[in-house]
Design a protein around this nucleic acid. Sequence first.
DNA 1: ACTTTAACCGACTCGTGGGTCGGTTAGTTT
DNA 2: AAACTAACCGACCCACGAGTCGGTTAAAGT
Lengths: 212, 212
Amino acid sequence: MTQNPNLMEKNLKKRETMHRLCAKGLEIFHHKGYYNTSLDDILNELSLSKGAFYHHFKSKEDYFIHIVQNLIVQKVYALLVEPLGINENPLAAIVDSLENALQPRLGNEMAYGFMLHDFITEFDKRNTKISRYLKDVLKVWEVNLVTVLKKGKIDGHISRHVDCEGVATYIIASYLGMRSLLTNSTNRQLRYQYLQQLKQYFNAISIRQTAA
Amino acid sequence: MTQNPNLMEKNLKKRETMHRLCAKGLEIFHHKGYYNTSLDDILNELSLSKGAFYHHFKSKEDYFIHIVQNLIVQKVYALLVEPLGINENPLAAIVDSLENALQPRLGNEMAYGFMLHDFITEFDKRNTKISRYLKDVLKVWEVNLVTVLKKGKIDGHISRHVDCEGVATYIIASYLGMRSLLTNSTNRQLRYQYLQQLKQYFNAISIRQTAA
DNA sequence: ACTTTAACCGACTCGTGGGTCGGTTAGTTT
DNA sequence: AAACTAACCGACCCACGAGTCGGTTAAAGT
């Protein structure tokens, strides 16, 4: 019960190991797929044992849910939600955030930007519990998109007759699909084509700013 | 070597069993996922044995490739390629085909319309051989989309400055993503929103037909 | 110093599922 | 009718991977 510095240190150790497990787990799960990755694959890389793992997590499923709630949520916020507030014009902000999210990340973590979709499709029909957690994360993005779109209407950037929920859905759908097409090929061409067409679409729903 | 009617009959028997296996396999694989379905799951439903299976196919992988090349290709053609030729205006034809493909099919085979995407994401990073076969099928759709889009330009339905490859990519991406969002919920709302926004987008790249 | 406990170890169990193999049956050929 | 063979049977093998459990170590508490 004593809350002295020693206990603190123990907690830190625990947290650090759990974080190492989660980080490496996310990396390998995303690379090879959840069901195609055995715990030993991860534990070997970290020189940890089964015992260590089950000391910290009660199952592989529990483990992955930790990863979703700690790491994946963070990435979605950082890449897709927070950037929405940067530009005063929401459509421009969305284009910027997607362009950035589709960039292959520096280092070896290519296409690391947004793994949510890969996992959603993997767990769909296989593990409804995990699916729900993942869809919740997606919902966060959607809600934020709708919010900035509505604000864009008020601020006169977006045509008043558009259906913000519909637009958000369409953006998400096209982005998810794009991510599917991009796997295997870090294809600059594809990314460029996608962003160009997205802008075309945005033209159709935006209010042209009369220059001067 | 004798090509008499009896041999014919044998071949028919073989073909019939293989077809039953493929059809049921596609149904269950699509429902539960390839890796989540054991051969026994399928064989029990058909009251067939391991021996029968391995008499006709050399492995589970070989089996699935048969399914792709016989059944999935057919469905893609029937649902997404052939309808492109019906309407003289390609954008209208595309909208119609997608609207139809997103309809849940009659009977219990809901969302049966287009399973290609589910499989592509499942095999990505897990089985590159099968992935290639699946991507080839997707490519067929893409090529046909580009063809009708280019024809649409010539016929004066589509603005001359658009990038047909880019448009095809964008259509495919949004459609694949839409399919992801539709799983679990046979959501009429989502489908409607998607088609509305697709039309918005098409407005941006089409040449308005001056009525009268 | 002695005990307790958190963190970790690794051999083990056990269910699952792809693939094998020695059959049996029923129809065909000669 | 005997020999042959395609279609099919189902018990078995074996690898793999999630989860278990009785340890060991090292630091903390007393």
